[in-house]
Amino acid sequence: MHDVNPESLSSPWSGGTLPFATGSKKLGMWLFIASDTLTFSALLVAYTYSRLSNPDWPRPFPFSPSILYSTVMTIVLLASSLTMVMGVRAGTRGDRAAVVKWILATMAGGLLFVGLHLREWMHLIDEGLRPGSNPWGGSPLFGAVFFGVTGLHMTHVLIGVIYLGIIAIGTGRGKFTAEDIEVSGLYWHFVDLVWMFVFPLVYLMSVQYK
């Protein structure tokens, strides 16, 4: 790249160096993740306000099958994070074939998650759940929260699958560096991390008590 002026090394902040010792792509992705975290936080905090302040919040999810079903979805998404980690690891070794294989496995996990999720959406829509009303009585906000939060998360998963597809094709052709693969991994783990809050807040807080 460029030669670093020795004088600028007096402080990592005097310019010409990488203060966080990361490339600009990785730093950029981290900054995007920070801002997206706040988007999801705002939605989940607003949800928590409605959830706690409404004693008649609907509890439409029986432990079996609904909660067990969404637990399986959670494990599928977690498993796709593990395959992504292995892909990034293969990337640092420079093993391109393994990277493509692991990323394809990650994409399969993401698509399975979206498939299961859409099946659940269809089921709830059939039961009569709408953004402004629900068939079980209680707060009408349930539908807005459910479709809003899980819909935004599902959009992130779908964008992630497309992003990983591009990375897989490019890696296969030798276009991307290990850093590019790691940056796509950061995005994928972030999507997983968001679900680690959506699942307990939206699902487990709405389990049907016997």
Partner: peptide, 9 residues
């Protein structure tokens, strides 16, 4: 100081 490669980490 040697050059650093893309994503020096």
């Amino acid at each position: 100081m040697s050059n650093h490669t893309e994503g020096a980490n």
